[in-house]
Design a protein around this nucleic acid. Structure first.
Length: 421
RNA sequence: GUGACCAUAGCUCAAUUGGCAGAGUGCCUGGUUGUGGCCCAGGAGGUUUCGGGUUCGAGACCCGGUGGUCACCCCA
């Protein structure tokens, strides 16, 4: 019986971790630098949390992609498909509304969606998520965008740019949606089925259609940024002003939208050019209605979700090499039973003293052990045999230089310390 | 959920019109006493993704499953 990973699930192998460590270390370091506190919430939550307050049409679709089952108590539970819902639940459950504002959180962990796998899209993927809660200032939107941008930039990505839009708020959006529907009404008959359905269920989604028949109409379509209420317009102009101030590259994209009601004002993505149809590296936006939707007080919020797999794929395609992972620079070889016992003691001693050390296993020929040592990547092979035991020394072979010297057994630790990085 | 292409050794790939399943690389061992890399020799490693079918004969042709890649759908 042979087993394999489930469709859309991946093993992350040691060689992959060169990239993963590089990315995750950078993400955590940046979050610290920006003053975000790490939080982790359960992978499993009550199903209702993920389906709360969504539009009818959306709930049906999302339900299909949710990994849901009944647990032994008969509770319907689901693997989290996103971070934000759990974070909002934690925000309310732990009274973070009474913490000093803003509350700035980040989380890293796996998310699960039963989708058909595609470039950079898997059923389990790891996301880095940052949220800034309790602040309406456009400078908060800017900060979240900067955090995302800095991550890609500092990892070595080139040609980055924001796609940016504002989709208004519950005050101005309904009127805009009516304007949008009115614009398409005369063309209704010529529209593809999917887009006619979108106009009814989720009108903003028509704007990011890929239907050839609809595309020509989009150029003349009314833009949400031209129909913002004064407060939303001010917010948007403030944000673009800040982006200009910092010289961050952005493109105002009137077709960039979100499908859910709790999104307001800012929506953005960071685009790279390495991922086929999935050219969005990450997406984020403002969601002032979200905390309320899980039973908390009205709380403005802005956040971003960044897929780690997409970064790793993109790094590989761009030929960006992460720094190599550190590995033990010392390996202990032995020849003869008495020497093996001493080798076991020496390995133990070095590791206790904090020196990463490898042990040559088995009772193989010295030649075979040296071959192993060579492939291990270690710099120094410490050789113990009858001669060394008799003289109370260790033969240290520099595998890089091909030279070797005898070092007194009791001096081996300082000898290594002075030479290892 | 829809569609296209794909699946041979751990990895990268061969195998003429349907006729003995191979190479490179990696792995293990050896090239005589306690010395790696280079070189040489040997070895292990395959139900050709799985299940059916056609055929004297299938890695190859047909049907189905599983998985991969890509696009659509959707994207919290």
């Amino acid at each position: 019986m042979r087993f394999q990973t489930l469709r859309g699930f991946n093993d992350i192998l040691p060689d992959d971790f060169r990239y993963w460590r590089y990315v995750l270390n950078k993400a955590v370091e940046l979050a610290d630098r920006f003053g975000y506190k790490q939080i982790d919430t359960p992978i499993l939550e009550e199903t209702r949390l993920f389906l709360r307050g969504l539009q009818e049409g959306s709930a049906v679709v999302l339900d299909k992609e949710l990994y849901t089952f009944e647990d032994q108590d008969g509770t319907s539970v689901s693997l989290r498909p996103e971070f934000t819902a759990g974070l909002m639940r934690a925000f309310v459950e732990h009274g973070m509304a009474s913490w000093p504002k803003p509350v700035k959180l980040f989380a890293i962990g796996p998310l699960f969606r039963h989708e058909k796998p595609q470039a950079g899209r898997f059923r389990q993927h790891v996301q880095f998520n940052a949220e800034l809660l309790g602040e309406e200032d456009a400078a908060a939107d800017l900060e979240i965008m900067q955090l995302a941008y800095s991550l890609y930039h500092e990892l070595g990505f080139k040609g980055l740019a924001f796609q940016l839009n504002s989709i208004g708020c519950p005050r101005c959006r309904p009127a805009y949606i009516e304007t949008l529907r009115a614009y398409f009404r005369p063309h209704q008959a010529g529209l593809p089925e999917v887009d006619r359905r979108r106009l009814e269920v989720n009108p903003l989604r028509v704007l990011d259609t890929k239907e050839a028949a609809t595309l020509p109409l989009l150029d003349g379509a009314p833009r949400s940024i031209d129909h913002l209420c004064p407060a939303c317009a001010d917010h948007f102009h403030a944000l673009t002003g800040y982006l200009d101030l910092l010289g961050l590259p952005y493109v105002i994209n009137p077709r960039l939208v979100r499908g859910f009601d709790y999104y307001v004002r800012t929506v953005f993505e960071v685009w790279g050019s390495e991922l086929g149809a999935q050219n969005a590296l990450c997406g984020g936006g403002r969601y002032d209605g979200l905390v309320e939707s899980v039973g908390g007080p009205p709380t403005p919020g802005v956040g971003v979700g960044i897929g780690i797999e997409r970064i790793v794929i993109s790094l590989r395609r761009q030929g960006i090499e992460p720094p190599p992972l550190t590995q033990p620079q010392v390996i202990v070889l032995h020849y003869g039973p008495a020497a093996k016992a001493e080798a076991i003691r020496l390995v133990d001693e070095l590791r206790r003293q904090g020196v990463p050390t490898l042990m040559a296993f088995g009772d193989r020929s010295l030649k075979a052990q040296l071959k192993t040592a060579d492939r291990s990547g270690a710099r120094y092979a410490l050789l113990l045999g009858e001669e060394e035991l008799a003289a109370a020394t260790v033969t240290v072979r520099d595998l890089q230089a091909g030279t070797q010297t005898a070092v007194s057994r009791q001096d081996i630790l300082p000898w290594l310390r002075s030479r290892l990085p």
